[in-house]
């Protein structure tokens, strides 16, 4: 039986014998009778042949394309990170991190200390504004609101997340800057607007995970709701809330658009006058360097990019490790 007779061109040969004389007309009264033109020869070896060989070729090609796609993504990441590290490392030094840029931007040397301090200041203020509001809004959705009002707040937060960051930047400009001068505080508010939905939605997801039994057990003690929230709900969701806040800080540190109209025209020194003038910051500094055609400015911008990317990646990796441990503890 190993020698399959050569099949006619129009008859598929996928593991079947096709003796033409057996192509009996359909016997309606016997649904179990096989449609003979495709009948299986069970004794044939189990190797792929005919159609299956072609189908497997398609399938394996698709497998290869999927692997290649993953490889492309990882290569792009490696390429970008390599570029930033190789360009940035040549300028990065203690003095680069502790000095300001030269008075004239087209000169070599100097550092980015005012921008590092400024970005840290802006992000800290933004976190101080957005974290309490975000956590309270999340508490409202999980602890106090009815279904419909919770959905409304959720919708508002998701829509806030969908507002393009440049629009947020213009909004802040109209609200706090137009007619006055730029000020760091306005930029911080812009960053806070971007952080708010991130913190609120992630906190909400962490709060939902607090076991219902635990909540009921505390309420059954007859203590007030705020005691339950403070004593049980928040502590058991603390890991999730912290994760969300830190991740949103890393995200905000890399934002440029909300600062563009609020805190972009800055001097080269450290500025703590957040209500009176623009606060120097890393992202706008890099953005301005990319608009210019000055290689010393580019070199400093690479250094700034390395400092910023290093911070963001380290935070992301650390949070990922922390989060994995926390989840393992929650489940185990």
């Amino acid at each position: 039986m190993s020698s399959t007779p050569p099949a006619p061109a129009d008859v598929p040969v996928d593991g079947v014998l096709a003796p033409p004389e057996e192509q009996a007309p359909l016997e309606r009264e016997d649904p179990l009778a096989p449609l003979t033109e495709y009948r299986l020869d069970p004794a044939r070896p189990l190797r792929a042949s005919g159609h299956l060989r072609r189908r497997q070729l398609v399938s394996r090609t698709m497998d290869a394309l999927q692997s290649a796609s993953a490889l492309i993504a990882v290569s792009v990441l490696a390429f970008v990170v390599y570029s930033v590290v190789s360009h940035g490392a040549s300028i990065l030094s203690i003095s680069f991190l502790t000095k300001g840029p030269p008075l004239i931007e087209t000169e070599p040397g100097g550092g980015i200390a005012p921008m590092i301090v400024g970005t840290a200041t802006l992000v800290a203020i933004a976190a101080a504004i957005s974290a309490p509001i975000g956590i309270l809004a999340a508490l409202y959705m999980t602890e106090f609101a009815g279904r419909r009002s919770a959905r409304l707040v959720r919708l508002a937060l998701d829509l806030l997340y969908g507002v393009p960051t440049i629009v947020t930047g213009l909004f802040i400009f109209a609200l706090l800057v137009a007619g006055k001068s730029q000020m760091g505080f306005a930029g911080a508010v812009g960053l806070a607007i971007i952080m708010l939905p991130l913190i609120a939605r992630a906190t909400q997801e962490a709060l939902v995970l607090v076991p219902r039994d635990l909540r009921q057990a505390v309420e059954a003690l007859g203590v007030g709701r705020w005691r339950a929230v403070r004593g049980v709900v928040l502590p058991s969701a603390l890991g999730g809330i912290l994760t969300a806040t830190v991740l949103s800080i890393a995200r905000a540190a890399g934002e440029t658009a909300p600062l563009l109209f609020a805190s972009s025209v800055f001097s080269n020194g450290v500025s703590m006058n957040i209500f009176g003038e623009a606060t120097p910051n890393l992202t706008v500094y890099i953005y301005k360097a990319s608009e210019g055609a000055n290689r010393f400015g580019w070199a400093r911008a690479w250094g700034a990019a390395l400092a910023l990317l290093g911070f963001i990646l380290v935070v992301n990796i650390a949070i990922r490790a922390f989060d994995a441990r926390r989840r393992a503890r929650l489940l185990g």
């Binding site: 189990l46 190797r47 792929a48 042949s49 189908r55 497997q56």
Partner: peptide, 9 residues
């Protein structure tokens, strides 16, 4: 042996 062929039968 192709497992797909095995499952087909």
């Amino acid at each position: 042996v192709d497992p797909v062929e095995v499952r087909r039968r």
